[in-house]
Write a protein that binds this DNA or RNA. Structure first.
Length: 404
RNA sequence: GCUGAGGUAGCCUAGCCCGGCAAGGCGCCAGCCUUGAAAGCUGGUGGCGGCGACGCCACGGGAGUUCAAAUCUCCCCCUCAGCGCCA
């Protein structure tokens, strides 16, 4: 079909050229030829319209085709058949009856979900005082760790065009999972993966650029439609959270070796914090459509008695690069080929914060600061309670009316 | 947001007024030359299809006029300058 239109166009170009030359030579223009060419144009227009329509349908379908899982992905129907690759115990002595973060946080007044709901609604919260400082310390510890591992830090846009959302696979399938602005065609990034991967959209990288490692700390926004119940208690599942994201652009022949490296880079964070964690190889039934292979890092929250996913480390092969036109060329004469894109959270707050609070509590109302974070908290070795504020806190914070 | 000027190959630029195969430079690659290098010379250097000769597509994006559009018309996007607004 494409070939037929091509041939018609070839004829038009050829005849048109002859007409131009004849005209230049001063010959009279034969009206019959002009009429024939007009008819030819109309045929091209109608044939091309058919072709465009067919190609449009094909492309829309192709966007829905999932990535084929890698051979090392276990076959399974859902999350229950994921394979735990390894589990690493905490290096911190646990208290007899650890409390969940949603009790520790309010007791120290470093976490305020009630006022979060007041200001923005269900699924939003405030970190206050040392809660905010601990989160920033975690972020800065991660940024420094990854910078030393060779990452270039980026502060990206977090409002994202539809084209970029399509390039990384958020659209068309997951539109209802993201927030969209009303007056503009802009989406709130659900993850820094979107701006970071689209950094080099529609570009050809040099073979010597690879592997290219970029990271970004950003807020992330997710509607989490339908996700309510016991799992949403506290801040393990919220609409806005911070995350340090790692993205790699890799030569296809090295992407699976790089996946292991990326996993170890994300793992280094939770290990340094002394947390109990496990690595899970997602089975075919639980694997996201865009990923060819994906490891989850899950943290143990001793207070809530739950595993919390803090990182997904994935190889997308050319799923994203083909949608977003990210290619590389080995040498000038070579054709450009699609790179492989990988990404991993390195890692997501606030679940990391949850695990730190629950793991590092030493006794009633006391949370120690993990040693690796102390330089980021002015040398402080435990969290201070934030003074309670306002009438609603009477009776909790041992404050009262002024008495003079 | 307003006014004006712009968007041409990896980069820089000509062509646009006046429609008829996108010219040149830089950079890069290869070859020649050279003890080696530089310089110089020759060739190559957008995408898709084809084993290939070759063909089609491509001048920010889209629509239109025309036998024929980088060139004319309309809509949109982006960049820059000035003005306005603003953390």
């Amino acid at each position: 079909m494409a070939g037929a239109v091509n041939a018609l166009r070839a004829k038009r170009n050829d005849e048109g050229q002859r007409l131009a030359e004849a005209k230049k030579a001063g010959a009279a223009v034969d009206p019959a030829i002009v009429r024939d060419l007009g008819e030819l144009r109309d045929r091209i227009t109608t044939e091309d319209a058919k072709l465009q329509e067919a190609e449009g349908k094909r492309d829309a379908l192709l966007l829905l085709v999932p990535q084929i899982p890698h051979g090392t992905v276990p076959v399974g129907k859902d999350g229950t058949e994921n394979v735990v690759v390894r589990e690493v115990p905490s290096t911190v002595a646990t208290v007899a009856t650890p409390k969940p973060h949603f009790e520790i946080g309010p007791a120290l007044n470093i976490l305020d979900t009630e006022r979060g709901a007041k200001v923005a609604g269900e699924g939003f919260y405030f970190l206050v005082g040392d809660g905010a400082r601990l989160e920033m310390a975690l972020i800065n510890f991660m940024r420094e760790t990854h910078r030393k591992a060779g990452y270039t830090e980026v502060l990206p846009p977090i409002l994202i065009s539809s084209a970029s959302m399509t390039g990384t696979g958020q659209l068309p399938k997951f539109a209802e999972d993201s927030y969209k602005t009303v007056l503009d065609d802009l989406w709130l990034a659900p993850t820094a993966e979107v701006p970071l991967t689209n950094l080099y959209r529609d570009e050809v990288l040099l073979g010597t650029d690879l592997p290219l490692k970029v990271m970004a700390f950003t807020p992330c926004f997710r509607r989490e439609a339908g996700g309510h119940g016991v799992e949403t208690r506290g801040i393990a599942r919220v609409h806005q959270f911070n995350k340090v994201e790692l993205v790699n652009f890799v030569h296809p022949s090295r992407s699976y070796a790089q996946l292991e490296t990326l996993l170890s880079e994300a793992e280094a964070i939770v290990k340094a914090l002394g947390l109990r964690y496990r690595i899970v190889n997602l089975c075919t039934g639980d694997l996201p459509d865009k990923a060819a292979k994906c490891y989850d890092i899950e943290l143990w929250a001793p207070g809530a008695q739950r595993w919390l996913e803090v990182s997904s480390v994935s190889n997308f092969e050319d799923f994203q690069s083909s949608r977003s036109g990210i290619r590389y060329r080995e040498q000038q004469s070579a054709k450009p080929e699609f790179v492989h894109t990988l990404n991993g959270s390195g890692t997501a707050l606030p679940r990391l914060l949850v695990a730190v609070l629950e793991t590092w509590q030493t006794s009633e109302g006391v949370v120690e600061v993990p040693p690796v974070l102390r330089t980021f908290l002015g040398g402080q070795d435990h969290l201070e309670r934030t003074p309670f504020v306002g009438e609603r806190e009477l009776g909790r914070g041992r404050r009262g009316w002024t008495t003079n």
